[in-house]
Every structure is written in structure tokens, then in C-alpha cells.
Write a protein that binds this DNA or RNA. Structure first.
Lengths: 140, 140
DNA sequence: CTGCATCCCTTTCGATACTG
DNA sequence: CAGTATCGAAAGGGATGCAG
């Protein structure tokens, strides 16, 4: 086969592949890694945050998260749905309407993620400064 | 800066407002995203965890984080150093020795990351179950 | 409106070989 | 021991077109 996209490869953004296995002694590492991957997926985090205050429709989310492509939003939502973090409700109206809403699990995830976000906001200046310093030192 | 974000009350893009329309160009969003990307980088998190209990040498880390390639460890450490999260200390001995150690900033980051890790451990069963259910429903 | 499929470019990452 | 250099494979991700 050439290079066409295999259907099986339509896996979701943050789904780990055959697992790099960080430390065999801690089986938990893989579970942790898969969750961290999802958080590290920029779009997943934004979607979760956007759903904080209730269910949203597909295009509503797309408009709120400026810069996300339709494809990425679809994939992100499928990944979140797969992990049981959001629910997908179809209203068979015309035109069709689909609502996405956080599950209890998803709402629980919000808390540690928010803590991380607050840390990020609080220290982004320090980090930016460190980067500038590092880059300056490494460019002369 | 955006028009109305107050440092004290600074929440994530999704504050519980009826019609938010978050500013995607908001500086905070980009800063947060860049920090989240680093956390999402699986290796970075593991390295930070490995450095919890004091400085470590390059190959020491490599052995502890089973599965990481030399290249990735180098790149990860460079990224962390650049962001001011770890320090790199060279001992000009023969053979050479390089120690990596968390900075205060890095140690601060550990806390929200650990919270996330604990959430992950606590809920990985639920997530795994949700995935299985989703996959089963989507394969028949 | 929602969302899948396709094309195609970019980034990431592992493996390998080589240097101080 | 602690890197750097290079290459090829794979995944990420945008743009577009089509379908339900």
C-alpha cells in the first residue's frame, strides 16, 4: 500500500501507541502517561474548559476555540468521549444538533487541570524570562 | 493584554459566563498552552518526577526512565533547562559528569503535576473501562 | 449543522554512528 | 560518560470536498 491513511489509524490524538513503557516496576506509569498525554493535547484541555459551564454544540465549541480546525475538534471530542470524559447527545432534528457535555469524570479532571493552568499563568513570566536568557546565552 | 482579565480572579478561558466569547489571542492562553505542552510531553513529566529526590546524572536518568532514547532524554533535559525548571551542572572530570537538578520553579511545578498524576491513578480504571466500552460499541 | 475522507506538508521520534 | 549528527519512519495537523 502507498501512504494512504488506514482506517485503523484513525485513532485519537492522545491515544498512546504500543506503549514506550517508562518503568516496568510501576504499572501505574502507563495509566498516568495516557492521562498526561491527553492533558498535554492542547485542544483537549481547551475543550474541557469550554464545557465548564454547561453543554455546548459542535460549532459553538469551534467558534469558542479560535484556531482549531474542524478535523481536530472532531478528533478531540471523540477522544474525550472515548475516555468517558464527555457525552455526545444527538438531537435528530433538521438541521441536526449535537451537544457535548462533561461527565462527572470530566468535571473531576477539571480540578487538577485548573490547578496546573493557574500555576502556568502565575509563572509564565518566569518561564518566558528563563527562555530568553537561555536563548541569548546559546546564540552568541 | 486582554481587556478585562484580572490577575486575582484569573481563571481559565472558560469562566462561568453565559456568553463568554473568550479571546483566543489573549496572551495568557498562549503561555498556558506552552506550559501545558511541556507537561503533556510525557518524558518531561517523568524526568521531573525522577528528580524529586535530588540531582541525577544523565545515564542515571536514562536507566530510571525505561524506554526513553538518548536523543529524547537530551532534548527533554534541554527543554526543561531552557524553561528554568532544571539546572545543568558540568563536572569537568574524566570521564565527564553532568548533574541535573530541579530548580525552585521546577519543584513548584511538581505539585500540580502530582495532583494530576494522582487523579490519573485513581481514575485509570474508569477510563480504561470507558475506552473498552466505546471501542466495543464502535467495532461491531 | 455535523462530521468523515483525502491530500499533503510539518513535526516528532527512534536508531545508528560518531566526537570530546 | 555525555553528548551531537543524520536519516528514515511515523504521527500530527491544516485545507478542502463530500455526505447525512
Amino acid at each position: 500500500m502507498g501512504t494512504s491513511l488506514k482506517p485503523a489509524n484513525t485513532d485519537f490524538p492522545a491515544t498512546p501507541r504500543p506503549d514506550p513503557i517508562p518503568d516496568p516496576n510501576h504499572a501505574d506509569c502507563r495509566g498516568v502517561a495516557s492521562v498526561l498525554s491527553r492533558v498535554g493535547d492542547k485542544w483537549s484541555v481547551f475543550v474541557i474548559m469550554m464545557l465548564s459551564d454547561g453543554p455546548k454544540r459542535f460549532n459553538e465549541l469551534k467558534r469558542m476555540i479560535n484556531g482549531i480546525s474542524q478535523r481536530m475538534l472532531t478528533l478531540t471530542l471523540r477522544g474525550l468521549e472515548r475516555d468517558g470524559l464527555v457525552t455526545r447527545t444527538i438531537f435528530p432534528t433538521i438541521p441536526p444538533r449535537v451537544d457535548y457535555e462533561l461527565t462527572d469524570l470530566g468535571r473531576g479532571l477539571q480540578e487538577p487541570v485548573k490547578a496546573l493552568g493557574e500555576w502556568a499563568i502565575k509563572h509564565q513570566q518566569q518561564i518566558a524570562a528563563a527562555r530568553t536568557r537561555f536563548d541569548a546565552r546559546n546564540e552568541t
